[in-house]
Design a protein around this nucleic acid. Sequence first.
DNA 1: ATTTATTTTTAGGCTAATCTAAAAAATAAA
DNA 2: TTTATTTTTTAGATTAGCCTAAAAATAAAT
Lengths: 220, 220
Amino acid sequence: MKYSASKEDYLKAIFHLQTEQSMVTTNALAVAMQARPASITDMLKKLKSEKLLIYERYKGFRLNNEGKKIAVQVIRKHRLWEYFLVHKLKFGWDEVHEVAEELEHITSKKLIDQLDAFLNFPVTDPHGDPIPDRSGKFNSPKQLNLLDFPMNTPAKVSSVASQTSDILELLDHKSIHIGTRLEIRKKFLFDNSIELKVKNQAPITVSEQVAQKIFVHNDE
Amino acid sequence: MKYSASKEDYLKAIFHLQTEQSMVTTNALAVAMQARPASITDMLKKLKSEKLLIYERYKGFRLNNEGKKIAVQVIRKHRLWEYFLVHKLKFGWDEVHEVAEELEHITSKKLIDQLDAFLNFPVTDPHGDPIPDRSGKFNSPKQLNLLDFPMNTPAKVSSVASQTSDILELLDHKSIHIGTRLEIRKKFLFDNSIELKVKNQAPITVSEQVAQKIFVHNDE
DNA sequence: ATTTATTTTTAGGCTAATCTAAAAAATAAA
DNA sequence: TTTATTTTTTAGATTAGCCTAAAAATAAAT
Ligand SMILES: [Mn+2]
Ligand SMILES: [Mn+2]
Ligand SMILES: [Mn+2]
Ligand SMILES: [Mn+2]
């Protein structure tokens, strides 16, 4: 029960994709993995023969319980390492993803459980994503996309759905972080941009593309 | 300037071997790498073409400056991670080597320099081996093998030249650690075993094979 | 219901890192 | 200084993970 870094990355990508579409397609995974469709098919055959997913040619695929279990453990490692990098090694939240992408493949159960304890069992990573516990359980807090959130209602930023440093840099610049309390002041129908008010700050405007990536929950 | 985990392991192994023999042999490296001689030859050709060592067929090989530089950085990473595992994640000194063998290949300069700072720039790893600084300089303290050390002279254990958990477990059991102060009481010529006295403890005997692995320095 | 376009799979290749078995070179022994 | 032994290298395979180009299956359009 030890899988290559590449296989772990595949399982993780499929896991994320199948929360949206119930059957994942070869092309979708090819985009996510930045590989050609032919390579995806090759790997699917291997993962199927290792009984980590169900797959019938031309019909799509999805992880079975065993595949999910492994994917979740990789996600757990990824997010714990991101937390470590930000809170212990003073990395910015926009520079941890690449490194965690490597660290997540270190194979030592003790390592990750001790790390978890050392970090005091954090429940969300620096991007606000939930960290599953050692049994694989997520404590996902309810959250809404900023675009669907009501105006003039206290909100707290809970996660940012992107790992690319461009958007994180932009949010950094506008002083929007996980935990930032804000309210929506205006929604411009013309371009779906949104004006936000953060306490003690001048109002700021974010584009639809940015708002789409921000998730919040009710702040009390 | 990025090398595979395998190449880094080769460079590291050659680096260690060439402190003893000035020219390293294919067979010696095959033993160290637990691989067949044919595989060693294959890799040597690659490392040579990447200008990391000097090598002429049938004549032996040794790292050039560039090869040494890379090896030292890998060693630095290995030892810093070992330190982290023992001092932050409560690993025993006998269970860190395998994990560090993987962690040492993570490729992020920032990661390792921040880790170094986080650990307060340690100078020796849990086995007493010196940790090179970011420029690659070793601050190696003078040390003598226990077999060559005079009797009835205060000594302090500075390092243990083995990564296998068998010997570390044995030393653990006999309460010998890095930093332990002891004196040699007797040297038995019959089998070269040695009787040691640790303060407030009954005298203990170690075999020649064990003594060979223990390095000490004068304790004032 | 054909034709056309898209998606997915197969066929065949490539590279890195390993292996075994056989050949060649170097070293040691007779 | 031949012969035998040991060491090292070459030759040829294998596996994982990727690729391109072509074929096959499915979906969309006329
Ligand atoms: Mn990864
Ligand atoms: Mn994250
Ligand atoms: Mn290693
Ligand atoms: Mn060590």
